[in-house]
Design a protein around this nucleic acid. Structure first.
Lengths: 133, 133
DNA sequence: TCCGATTTTTCTTTGTAGGGCATAATCTCT
DNA sequence: AGAGATTATGCCCTACAAAGAAAAATCGGA
């Protein structure tokens, strides 16, 4: 049994770089190159230095792939996104502000209903949005 | 009076490429280069071919500047964003879905209030969020 | 206030550093 | 023998900047 360790239910634990490259339709050299650029893309290696990719490694790779190949970020831009230094831009800000205003309004509304009216209040529906941002 | 036309209240209508370049802290050649890449960045020109930038031109330029210089998009990536082919990614999707659920809930709530209760309904407050996305 | 001289700004065209990989050569492991 | 590793090198665009010419703005003297 090589590096594709299998459990009794035949679930693959590790992927080789060739398999990963095929999955994403890219050259293996690109995966090695990105590895130098992104800390999140450094897989475990076996005793002889062969790369062993886990599901989590694949997810990280998918994120980088989406940012760079689909959305059109530069490598530096993708790093910024991954480091969470951005996101709060453009439309996002407006949307979040809208959500906050709505939440405030809903809280006020709930208080009004609870204090003045015998109507059944859908409490959990309100609470559902309390930790959105 | 040159290209900086002024109204009686001294409001500038057009900016030269040099002024624009200074505002953004970039080389004028970059502005000309971007002009070839982005349709939205083609300002009006006077009879001799000199570029005349309006406020709107500056806003468009600001958008491109943010995407390319702040967020780290490639020029192609920035084009995609501007053409609205993307945006619906990552966190955004969840936020929009939340907004839509809230809107549906609010509409239901408004109907309930209007039909069953003599409470004053803040109609415009609801309507305010009707065209968010 | 008009004219020429000088400086500044803009134009278009051309040049280029480096970002983003791929390929080549060589070696190792299995 | 086939896949993977490392290192070096090659290379094509992307993303601008620089160069050179032309036009516009500023200034100084008559």
């Amino acid at each position: 049994m090589p590096y594709k360790e299998k459990s009794e239910t035949d679930i693959k634990l590790y992927y080789t770089i060739g398999e990963v490259a095929d999955k994403f339709g890219v050259n293996a050299s690109l995966i090695r190159f990105w590895e130098k650029e992104f800390e999140a893309l450094r897989p475990k290696k076996n005793a002889t230095g062969k790369r062993l990719y886990t599901k989590t490694d694949l997810e990280n790779l998918q994120l980088v792939y989406n940012l760079v190949k689909i959305e059109g970020y530069t490598l530096e831009g993708a790093k910024k996104v991954i480091d969470g230094k951005l996101f709060d831009n453009r439309k996002d800000k407006k949307i979040i502000r809208s959500l906050q205003e709505i939440r405030m309004f809903l809280h006020g509304l709930r208080n009004a209903i609870e204090n003045e009216s015998p109507v059944q209040t859908p409490k959990d529906t309100f609470d559902k949005y309390d930790n959105i941002e």
